[in-house]
Every structure is written in structure tokens, then in C-alpha cells.
């Protein structure tokens, strides 16, 4: 099993772990063979990484991958909060949402 960025996926690869969106909803089930349509949909839905079957590193995320995931979450939040970030309440909310999304990503 190996972990690939969505941009590295190829048609024919088999999904090794269920792919969910940011809210945890299933986008692609385990065992599904990817095709171009599915890969394009995963890109559109902002899925960052997918586990596929094959040789590669097993187990949990590397520290670099965890860092990259956090950076991506932060970047998305910066974009979404850009009009309200000067407001202290909204700044505080952004931090809480960041903690929640990082926790959820790790589960």
C-alpha cells in the first residue's frame, strides 16, 4: 500500500483505503479501480492524498506528510476567512476550526 498525492494517481490503480471528503463523507470506496473520471472528481473535491494498493510505505503518516496536511488546511482557512480575519471573534473561530480539521484528518 502506498500514499500518493491526487496529482500522482493513474487510471488502473486500486484504492486501498476509503477516500472521504473533509466532512468524512465517502467519495471512493476501498477496492475501487480508479479511472480518469474518478481521479478528476477527486481533484475537483480538493482531495489531497489517496492510499492505493501496491508496494510502498505502510502505516501512519510521516512527519513531513503531517506538516504538509496542516499547511494545506491552514492555506484553505486563510483563503476562506480572508474577509473577516481582522475580527477577533472570527480569528478565534478560525483557530478552533483549524484544530478540529487537523484532528479529523488524523482520525
Amino acid at each position: 500500500m502506498k500514499r500518493l498525492r491526487t496529482t500522482e494517481l493513474q487510471p488502473g490503480m486500486v484504492v486501498a483505503k476509503v477516500v472521504t471528503d473533509i466532512a468524512g463523507r465517502i467519495l471512493v470506496a476501498e477496492g475501487v479501480t480508479l479511472n480518469e473520471g474518478l481521479i478528476s472528481r477527486l481533484c475537483q473535491r480538493d482531495v489531497d492524498v489517496v492510499w492505493v494498493k501496491g508496494d510502498g510505505e505502510e502505516g501512519s503518516l510521516s512527519p513531513e506528510e503531517i506538516e504538509r496536511t496542516k499547511e494545506k488546511i491552514q492555506e484553505d482557512l486563510d483563503r476562506r476567512f480572508r474577509l473577516v480575519i481582522e475580527d477577533p471573534l472570527m480569528g478565534g473561530l478560525k483557530d478552533r476550526i483549524f484544530d478540529y480539521l487537523v484532528r479529523r484528518e488524523g482520525e
Binding site: D21, I22, A23, D46, D76, L77, R79, R80, F81, R82, L83, V84, D87, L89, M90, L93, K94, I97, Y100, L101
Partner: peptide
């Protein structure tokens, strides 16, 4: 829901509470 980035309703700006 906008802060969590779920779906898209025409823009992706989080409104102020």
C-alpha cells in the same frame, strides 16, 4: 459549514458572525 469548507454556495467566504 463555510468555515469547514463543505460544499459551495456561490462563494467560499466565511461570513461574519
Amino acid at each position: 459549514v463555510k468555515a469547514m469548507g463543505i460544499g459551495h454556495s456561490g462563494d467560499d467566504f466565511v461570513p461574519e458572525i
